[in-house]
């Protein structure tokens, strides 16, 4: 006797129950709590559960979070800009790698190449971020190297503790996530299509533009989403690479929750960020669907 003697529907429910409970507890409950808390107020050590829009009003009224002023951008647009740049750089760098593995590596060697590409993941993310500090720092590998070679006299100071370093570090960290979806999309392209394009008068470059690139768009869209969404929430890299005073939206949220003990404002900022990311993702998904319409 047990669940396997019951109806198929009950059996299915029983099988789904554990992951469902898991998703409910670890995804839905925190999310709903955040939404609720964003409408409350912090009063000393406790939360006042009276519905209020004050947190949202604070976010939208001042220049800090969204609007910015002449001297600096709002934190959220700046963060979106950084994530977009990271996404662009990552996808632009990932595409040639994926292309190379898919088109120029012998079939029996492909899995070895994919394995090699994942090797950076064997090192902890935190350690990789610190390694970039060692590489880009004032007395880091790049600067000492360039000085030794006599190419520069003084260390370059635009390498570390600014947005460049955040973009470099994140692009490296998310490269694999961008390579794999593009690789899969390229693998799915029927090679006879490339020969057909050549047969119809196109050279290798125009074949790429007219056939390979359009057919790999689903992979590119996948990569964009996979890189863009998590990078906006990454607070370790900006924390370590921006230095004093530098703040992206993830750091601001973390500060509200953990240092200023203002959960409601932190929650409201999270919701606004989530909505912004959601809108960007939606645009991409719709673009992709439009693209996929009329294709197999």
């Amino acid at each position: 006797m047990g669940i396997f003697d019951t109806s198929p529907r009950a059996r299915a429910a029983a099988l789904v129950a554990p992951p469902f409970a898991y998703a409910l507890l670890l995804l839905a409950v925190p999310l709903i709590s955040i939404v609720l808390i964003s409408f409350w107020t912090q009063t000393g050590l406790t939360l006042s559960r009276v519905f209020t829009l004050d947190n949202y009003r604070e976010i939208f009224s001042g220049p800090i979070y969204i609007w910015g002023n002449q001297n600096r951008w709002g934190v959220l647009p700046l963060s979106l800009f950084v994530s977009a740049t990271v996404t662009l750089v990552t996808v632009l760098l990932a595409y040639p790698v994926a292309y190379f593995v898919s088109f120029h590596v012998a079939p029996q060697r492909k899995s070895l190449w994919l394995f090699l590409i994942t090797i950076p993941f064997w090192t902890s993310y935190l350690i990789r971020v610190f390694l970039w500090k060692v590489i880009l720092g004032y007395n880091g590998v790049v600067n000492t190297g360039l000085i030794e070679l006599g190419l520069i006299q003084e260390p370059l100071d635009f390498l570390l503790y600014n947005l460049n370093s955040v973009i470099i570090t994140l692009s490296h960290a998310y490269a694999v996530f961008a390579i794999l979806p593009i690789y899969v999309a390229l693998e799915k392209i029927d090679r006879s299509l490339l020969e057909a394009a050549q047969d119809l008068g196109e050279n290798r470059f125009t074949t790429f533009v007219r056939v390979t690139l359009p057919l790999s768009v689903p992979g590119i869209v996948g990569s964009v989403l996979i890189v863009f969404i998590p990078t906006i929430g990454d607070y370790v890299t900006p924390e370590l690479m921006l230095g004093a005073g530098g703040r992206l939206i993830s750091n601001v949220i973390q500060t509200q929750f953990l240092q200023l003990n203002n959960w409601p404002l932190g929650a409201a900022l999270s919701i606004i960020t989530m909505l912004a990311v959601g809108v960007v993702s939606l645009v991409f998904i719709l673009l992709n669907q439009r693209w996929l319409r009329g294709r197999g």
Binding site: D190, S192, L193, E195, A196, A197, Q198, D199, L200, G201, E202, N203, V211, P214, L215, G294, R295, G296
Partner: peptide, 22 residues
């Protein structure tokens, strides 16, 4: 002389119809 400069055209076994085009 590469394929794209030859006075030949081919009908492929798989037909090689471009799926992203009408």
């Amino acid at each position: 002389v590469p394929a794209n400069h030859r006075p030949t055209n081919m009908v492929f076994q798989s037909y090689a119809i471009f799926p992203h085009l009408s």
